[in-house]
Amino acid sequence: MTATATTTTATGATPTATVTEAVTETFAELYGAGPDGVWAAPGRVNLIGEYTDFNDGFVMPLALPHTAVAAVARRDDGVLRLHSADVDGGVVQLRVDELAPLSDGGWAAYPAGVVWALREAGHRVPGADLHLTSSVPTGAGLSSSAALEVVTALALDDLYALGLSRPELARIAQRAENDFVGVPCGIMDQTASACAVEGHVLHLDCRSLSIRQVPFDLAAHGLSLLVVDTRVKHALGDGAYAARRAGCEEGARVLGVSHLRDVPYADLDEALGRLEDETVRRYVRHIVSDDHRVVRIARLLTEGDVRAVGPLLTEGHASLREDLRVSCDELDLVVESAVAAGALGARMTGGGFGGSAIVLVESSAADEVTRSVEAAFAARGFAPPRVFPAVPSRGAHRVA
């Protein structure tokens, strides 16, 4: 979906009353009656733990104050009607019993895929009318698609009293993206959108799917976390995810483990010595060390030593740049210019080859660091980046 202006409060992922009123009014104009309710689900940014999810490892995302918002009403006639305020075109009308995976590559595949996944799991969803809008930036690696899936899943769960837990909603949303849309994502994005708690990061074990909410009250420590959207996506990223996944699987096979999560950090050097392929060796080094960084950062946050997280972010970026090789000039420039201007640490976040970076700064220095990054981009002839604070926000919830 096309990004719109931010429509959330400064402290949590709840749409303003104006946004709620607008989606309700538009819904009534489209469908001739008001919705049964309005729901919101946030995008996310990942603090640490990149490419570790499909290795059964650890990740640590937080919800953004940017949300997908859905006004929804029940139907019992097998009809699914979908409309987006952010995409040109009218209402998309489908029949729930004719939904088929990989049949439509457009935006409507995301909410339609959720309906399909719920029905495939045996849940009664006889139809619905939906009107959607989103303030989650698209193409920035901030999980705009997961927000769209989760808000749809939550609304239908509420309306049809399906009784699903938040982790179950996340799995339904992931199946929609994997099997219906055809994107082989891990479980992190949907879990963060469904399960995040305001003022916390979500420490997720991607093997057991156990969740621990870790306090991340930056304001109390005089700190800010900035998201720097480079606004670029390089074609080099096409196919990179699959290639790195295959390399990690090969590394696990040679090392005799089911997933790289099973390689202890203390044994990393010995494990690397058993790998002959240099590319596989680099991938293994990144995954095992990034899993270890997640554990270290979780410990630091639990102890309240938030500033000590900064150098680990920068260390993680070096690993992504040198070992996984998924960075790019724009992302490297964010990290270099931010740290040079006094940031505590910075790293690319998400799949790489463009998208966004995060920067941990003293709040008093946020404007200066932002100006330094913008000046560095201008000096290199890059398009101006988009910079905004990542306030740890609440997960999906009913608004009205």
Results as ranks from 00 to 15, higher is better:
Ser372Leu: 03
Val387Asn: 12
Ala170Ile: 05
Asn55Leu: 02
Val136Ser: 11
Tyr110Ser: 12
Ser224Ala: 15
Thr314Trp: 05
Pro167Asn: 03
Thr18Val: 10
Leu275Trp: 05
Leu226Thr: 12
His221Phe: 00
Asp323Leu: 03
Ala153Arg: 08
Ser372Thr: 12
Val391Leu: 03
Tyr283Pro: 00
Ser145Met: 06
Leu102Cys: 04
Asp157Met: 09
Gly273Leu: 01
Glu98Leu: 10
Val284Pro: 02
Leu223Phe: 06
Ser103Glu: 11
Thr7Gly: 14
Val369Thr: 09
Val309Phe: 05
Val295Ser: 14
Val295Thr: 15
Leu30Arg: 15
Leu312Arg: 02
Gly251Phe: 00
Val114Arg: 13
Arg371Gln: 15
Leu209Ile: 00
Asn46Ser: 04
Ala140Val: 07
Ala85Glu: 15
Gly316Lys: 02
Asp269Cys: 00
Leu301Gly: 08
Ser393Val: 06
Val59Ala: 12
Ile358Lys: 09
Gly222Pro: 07
Asn46Ala: 03
Glu25Val: 14
Ala121Trp: 01
Gly256Ile: 08
Arg212Thr: 15
Leu64Ile: 06
Arg81Ala: 15
Ala240Gly: 04
Thr152Lys: 04
Tyr241Ile: 01
Gly247Asn: 13
Tyr31Gln: 07
Val214Gly: 12
Thr6Gly: 11
Leu169Cys: 10
Leu47Lys: 06
Ala13Arg: 13
Gly199Leu: 10
Val197Thr: 14
Leu64Lys: 11
Arg285Ala: 14
Ala298Tyr: 00
Asp290Arg: 09
Ala235Ile: 00
Gly49Leu: 07
Tyr51Gln: 11
Gly127Ala: 12
Ala140Pro: 09
Asp277Lys: 08
Asp305Met: 04
Gly316Leu: 01
Tyr283Asp: 05
Thr26Asp: 12
Val334Ser: 08
Val334Trp: 07
Ile48Asp: 06
Ser84Leu: 03
Asp76Gly: 14
Ala243Val: 11
Ala41Thr: 04
His286Gly: 11
Ala366Trp: 14
Pro35Thr: 10
Ala109Ile: 04
Val254Phe: 02
Val254Ile: 15
Leu324Phe: 15
Asp290Leu: 03
Thr52Ala: 06
Val263Trp: 00
Tyr265Gly: 12
Arg81Asn: 13
Ala71Cys: 06
Gly90Lys: 04
Leu118Cys: 13
Thr26Tyr: 15
Ala357Arg: 08
Thr152Ser: 14
